[in-house]
Amino acid sequence: MTAGGDPARITKRSLGRRFVTRPEVGSLVGAIAVFALFFAVAMPFRELDSLSTVLYASSTIGIMAVGVSLLMIGGEFDLSAGVGVITSALAAGMFAYELSLNVWVGAGLALMLSLGIGFLNGYMVVKTKLPSFLITLSMFLMLQGLNLAVTRTVTGSVASPPISDMDGFASAQKVFSSTFTVGGVSVQLTVLWWILFVALATWVLLRTKVGNWIYAAGGNADAARAVGVPVNYTKIGLFMTVGFMAWFVGMHNLFRFNTVQSGEGVGQELIYIAAAVIGGCALMGGWGTAIGAAIGALILGMAQQGVVYAGWNPDLFMFFIGATLLIAVVLNLWVRTRAHRR
């Protein structure tokens, strides 16, 4: 019996078609194109050292993009992610300095704070059922104000106090911001962390219960609830994951530069979202991969450094991101509608 539809009308999807419907494919093509562009126009871009710099720039965007893309797949946004990084770094620096603590204790307190902000975002989103855009926009503006106000009140300046001579700084720097050498080229450790987080996120998404729940929460939250998926916990957990990533990048900034400017971070949240979208994450959730977001981050990293290497006006970076984003979303739409049509 062959009921349940007309099998003759549905053919097995070819390998090629299955490949082009992968969320990452559009961005992979884009990454190759951007690489080729800068390889052609910028001489310094061809050197191995530049590759290391590009990877470093990509990794700081990419680590955040891991959290942001998971959240987007789960159907929510976080506009407070950019300033959240700075909040975490400022908090760690000031806690450690003002209370004369080991910097690891400061980092631990900052972790609590970042997870707490993530929890608050998530809790408010699931309780009020308001769009996360509004909740996290509010959080973004509040954190931006607090970053400036609290830093000025506590330190009397616009930056966190220098902590490089404090206990634990050396070991923390090893973890968050050291370099290693591959083939004579010095590479930032964040690149490895980035790869690790992407691998972990990919494994969780594709091979665990929680991953199934993330896709379901973003794809059809009501259906997921109806079959017993804890949608609210999943979403809160995703906001906290973004909080964790913000803490990690914040710690990197702090231990790399020793001090953090309180006004930074504004606008970065959109870069992370752009990376996720360029990587094929659907704006409305339910679709996307961590690897796609990593490719998106790589495109942005290449653009950021490539504009400089090509000797173009660095102000063009934002233009370049905008253009890339536009091309990426149109391309994704085109690929998806074509691939799903028979």
Binding site: N212, A216, G219, N220, A223, A224, A226, G286
Partner: peptide, 10 residues
Amino acid sequence: YQDLALVPLL
């Protein structure tokens, strides 16, 4: 349920 039984993209 008629409309919310499944997650279309999964």
